[in-house]
Deep mutational scan, measured.
Amino acid sequence: MADQLTEEQIAEFKEAFSLFDKDGDGTITTKELGTVMRSLGQNPTEAELQDMINEVDADGNGTIDFPEFLTMMARKMKDTDSEEEIREAFRVFDKDGNGYISAAELRHVMTNLGEKLTDEEVDEMIREADIDGDGQVNYEEFVQMMTAK
């Protein structure tokens, strides 16, 4: 299944994987998964984290390695993001709930994920998604960005 991913997608997933893999040992533990999910405003229980890991832990060693992570991402993409997942993601970014993602809100979430971005990089990300040019990202623009192939 992971063989249907483009090189660009694999590179993006590698970057995402390293955000989860806090200690850089090449595997994601339940603790690391929990840290990232909490930084995104989720509050999973230990059991939920274990279930999430077990779902993709092909070799049964209790952690997720990069090939397992790729399989999980490929699977998720095949079920292409349901509207509800996209709306949920939008809410994570839209901290003040005004229906727009500002540069400050984007920077806040990315920083929580451990991504240190310059102001230019954040502005560039907003510009790429900002179709109507108002300097922020509304829900429609967010959907376009998330579903762009």
Results as ranks from 00 to 15, higher is better:
E121T: 01
M37F: 00
G97H: 03
Q50G: 05
E7I: 15
A129N: 02
I126T: 11
D21F: 14
E84H: 02
D130T: 02
Q144A: 00
Q144W: 05
F69Y: 08
S102H: 09
E88F: 04
N98T: 06
V143E: 14
E141L: 00
K76Y: 15
D81I: 06
E128I: 11
N138L: 02
I28R: 13
L33M: 03
H108Q: 11
T147P: 12
R87G: 06
Y100V: 04
N98D: 10
A2F: 15
G135F: 01
K78H: 03
L49V: 14
T27G: 11
T45S: 10
T118R: 09
R38I: 01
G24I: 15
Q9I: 07
R87P: 08
V137C: 13
N98L: 07
F90R: 01
E48R: 06
T118G: 01
N98M: 15
F90Y: 11
D94Y: 07
T111A: 12
S39M: 10
E7Y: 05
G41S: 10
Q9A: 00
T30S: 12
L19R: 04
M145K: 08
T111C: 07
F20C: 13
A2Y: 05
A89K: 02
G133C: 01
D51W: 02
G62C: 11
E7G: 13
M125T: 09
N138T: 07
E15A: 07
L33W: 00
S39V: 14
M73K: 14
D59A: 13
K14D: 12
D132P: 00
G97M: 14
E55N: 08
Q9D: 06
L40S: 09
E88D: 11
K95Y: 03
R127M: 09
E32D: 13
G114H: 10
G24Y: 07
N54I: 09
D59N: 11
N54A: 00
E7L: 06
M73A: 13
D51P: 04
R127Q: 07
D123L: 00
R107N: 01
E120W: 10
Y100A: 07
M37N: 15
I131H: 14
I86Y: 06
V137W: 13
E48L: 08
T27V: 07
D79L: 09
D94P: 01
R91C: 03
G26I: 15
D96I: 02
G62R: 13
R38A: 05
A2G: 12
G34L: 11
N61M: 03
A104G: 12
S18I: 02
T80Y: 04
M52W: 06
G133D: 06
